[in-house]
Design a protein around this nucleic acid. Structure first.
Lengths: 133, 133
DNA sequence: TCTCAATTTAGAATTATTCTAAAAGTGATT
DNA sequence: AATCACTTTTAGAATAATTCTAAATTGAGA
């Protein structure tokens, strides 16, 4: 589902994020209904391509805040750059090492049976399955 | 199984790595029979503690080479530092986010049934399961 | 022991990210 | 619409992990 401007504002409001200019602009780039895995540089380029004037620091601020608010999922597959995933439903990843690129694996394509018992006082924050290919 | 000096030399030879001073020294620190997850800084500190004189660049060179030769497994759970895992048999990981620390999960504690079909011309390099807690 | 390619090293360079503090924007209230 | 209190944005500096460079050192084989 593609979001229009009102949807984007609503989405931000629902997550207690003040819908400022650049937040709306970046949300508009990211939440267009297509699942994406973007780096900070990707977002800077996308913004440039659509004449959105912003700064490197703002892109970092915004993506970090979106991730902290549960609007994006941060994916660590490389020791260098971070990827941000717009697909928030449960799923896994292929990582194409040579292309430095992620691709979603539907959750039901992998059947995980039985998780290990957790150390005391811990709860699961996420279960990440990455298949490197 | 704890390795003595001859074992370490043999281990490097078997992996076509010239057993130089610092390589033997770092291998001696890492391959003592206990599974470890170390960062570059950890190794630098371990070396210092045992009066092994070396440089930051050499630790990077050595760990990178060990990883490339299959003597270590590089683990990417954070966007910043790399972890190097001395346990080469199949297993998974707990990642303690607050402590920035890894712990092994035995392979049979998680039962993965059915992997997705791979994109054309690809083969699996690794299947990494990380449970963030 | 000599030689030469491989290795080590200190420090510079690079890259991703965070920090800082000043300028601009925001939303509520007159 | 003007004011006010706060939040956000931004350029550039700072930080941190890692790689690069080029000179010095080492080590395996003749």
């Amino acid at each position: 589902m593609k979001h229009d401007i009102a949807d984007i504002k609503n989405l931000l409001n629902r997550h207690d994020i003040r819908p400022t200019q650049i937040r709306k602009a970046i949300a508009g780039l990211l939440f267009d209904g297509l699942d994406k895995h973007v780096t900070v540089d990707d977002v800077i380029e996308m913004a440039r391509g659509r004449q959105i004037k912003t700064s490197v620091a703002s892109v970092y601020n915004t993506l970090n805040q979106f991730a902290a608010s549960g609007l994006l999922r941060r994916v660590s597959v490389e020791q260098g750059r971070a990827f941000f995933d717009t697909n928030l439903s449960a799923h896994h990843h292929f990582y194409f090492e040579d292309e430095e690129r992620l691709e979603d694996i539907p959750v039901d394509a992998i059947n995980i049976q039985g998780l290990p018992k957790l150390p005391k006082g811990r709860r699961i924050k996420s279960v990440d399955v990455t298949i490197r290919i």
